[in-house]
Amino acid sequence: MSSNSVHLEFDVVGNNFVSAGSASNEVKGILKQLGIDPLVIRKIAVAMYEGEINMVIHAGGGRAIVDIFEDKIEIVLIDTGEGIEDVELAMKEGYSTASESIRNLGFGAGMGLPNMKRFSDKFELESEVGKGTTIKMSMLFPE
């Protein structure tokens, strides 16, 4: 065995609401197989799901890279979308730039980024307008 970690990568397809959430769903299943506490899994799943949806709605898709260690999970979400103009504003609860049609689908409530941060033990966001956004989240597994 190479190391004590599990490495996973997923393509997140842009503007496809049917397959949206499949990466977080798979990670959820894997964490269950590892016997991680169900409430911790739920937090991770919600945070990753929100991140996936964001990439689907705003960035035309992207890539999710997940590393699972004995004591934590690291999730990196990378897209080459339009980027976030005002990160501070984007992190505010209820703020959303999603279009009316997206909102009609039940998304775009402005809770995505705040929830991702709330459910992470460590949260980093880097974004450049016109180039894309990278989000790093890590969550600890309590013993």
Binding site: M1, S2, N4, S5, V6, G29, I30, K32, Q33, L34, G35, I68, E70, F141
Partner: peptide, 16 residues
């Protein structure tokens, strides 16, 4: 669906 009581062993099984 839990692969092993021991998390390291579970991770090894998952890798396999």
């Amino acid at each position: 669906f839990k692969l092993d009581e021991n998390r390291i062993k579970a991770m090894q099984k998952l890798e396999q």
